[in-house]
Structures are given as C-alpha cells and as structure tokens.
Write a protein that binds this DNA or RNA. Structure first.
Length: 226
DNA sequence: GCGACAG
DNA sequence: ATCTTGTCGC
C-alpha cells in the first residue's frame, strides 16, 4: 500500500515530542461515510533484546471468516531508543516498511499500541493512520496513561479510560475471565466504530486475530533469521 | 523529589 | 519487547 512520508525519522526525542503535538492536531476522529470494513490488516514488530534489528510482519484478513489474504515480513534497523510516549519513532519505520510491501489495500488497520489514549493524544496508531491514510485503531495490552474501572465480565463489555477529565479510550473485555485490552482511536475513525471493529476481530481470543497473526509471523521471521 | 511508564 | 516453568481448563 501507498505510504505518505510525513517527515524524517532520524530526529531526537525532544524534537519528536514537539512533532507529536503538531501532528496530533491533524488527527480526524470521524469515520468515513459508508464505512463497512471487509478486510482488516495488522502488523507487529519482533526483535532480540539489545538488538537494533527489527523483524516485522503485516497481515491482511477477511473480517468475515478470518481467512488470511496476505502476509509480508521485512527486516529493518532501528536506532531510536524505547521511550514511553515515543514508541512510534522506534517502531513506525519498521511498520511503514512492511505496510509498503502489502499488495492488498485494507479497509482498516489495527496497531499494537495506543492511539488517542496517549499523554499527548498521539500514540503509534495515530501516527500510522496519518502515514497510511487509512482508518487505524490502537489496541494496547496495558495502559500508558489514564484510569479506568474494570468493565463487566462479558465479551463486549467496556469501560471508559479517563485522563484529565477526558474520555480517551476504553478498556474492552474481548472474552470473559481475561484482562481487557485498551482500545483508542488512531485516525479516520470514531471510538464506537473502533470498538465494534476490534470486537469483530475477536471470536475467541483476547487479542484481535490479525494482531495475533502478525505477532506470530514477526516472531517466526526473527527465529528463522538466526 | 518520587513514582509511573504502550512496546 | 524478550527470557522462562509450570499449571489450569476446554
């Protein structure tokens, strides 16, 4: 798929923060007319501890039966350190590379990490949305900011995540008896639609199927490369 | 100053 | 994120 080069990646943490504040104002939390996704994509990154070599995988599936349409992997190098709040500057270059090799144009993209539920309201899912020009949703396994009350124990139950008196996302129970996942808007989508979409990607797993698949493929690519 | 801190 | 061993349950 086509990728938009918004800016350079070789910048310093201090500049990355000001860039996030600038880009955050361009995020659109509105779903396109007649949005009815049939295909969903997701990507993930895997790497050895202390290594700057990143193995990424992108997967596209039919939302109906979770049939895999396409899988791509790529190996890239990253120099940006892991800094809470600046994850996209470390992993987005790798994701950008795999997504660019995708021949299928997905209707929506799931990203491993937060979107709007971020200290500066610009998590990696937002960054990915601007670069891909496609609706994106942030799906994180833990919180980086905000507070929430435990949602009900039924699949689909969710409770709001608040930060500075603002609702920034939700804690979504994707299956009973397991910790909820944290969903927030990335770009070109509204929270309710994001929740519905994520839920439709979880038939019996806590993590949305496309993300699970991407995680597995990225890991396999890393192990094989050795 | 202290604790928290996506992946 | 990655590294590990066992354990619970469908």
């Amino acid at each position: 798929m086509k990728i938009d080069k918004l800016h350079e990646w070789n910048i310093k943490p201090a500049d990355a923060i000001s860039l996030q504040k600038k880009l955050a104002s361009t995020i659109i939390m509105k779903t396109p007319k007649h949005f009815s996704p049939e295909t969903v994509a997701a990507a993930d990154v895997s790497f050895n501890r202390f290594s700057s070599v990143f193995f990424s995988a992108a997967v596209v599936m039919w939302l109906s039966e979770f049939e895999t349409i396409e899988v791509r992997t790529s190996v890239t190098e990253s120099s940006f350190p892991y800094v809470p709040g600046l994850l996209s500057f470390r992993e987005m270059p790798a994701l950008e590379t795999v997504f660019s090799t995708l021949e299928t144009e997905p209707d929506v993209v799931l990203i491993d990490g937060h979107g709007y539920a971020h200290p500066r309201r610009f998590g990696i899912a937002c960054h990915a949305g601007l670069i891909l020009g496609t609706p994106t949703i942030g799906c994180a396994k833990s919180l980086i900011v905000g507070e929430y009350d435990a949602p009900g124990n039924k699949r689909g139950d969710h409770s709001p995540i608040f930060h500075n008196d603002e609702k920034i996302g939700v804690a979504l129970r994707t299956r009973p008896d397991v910790k909820p996942i944290f969903v927030s808007v990335g770009h070109l989508i509204d929270l309710d639609t994001a929740i519905d979409t994520v839920l439709s990607c979880c038939h019996s797993t806590r993590i949305p199927e496309p993300l699970r698949a991407a995680h597995i493929h990225a890991n396999e690519a890393r192990k094989q490369h050795k």
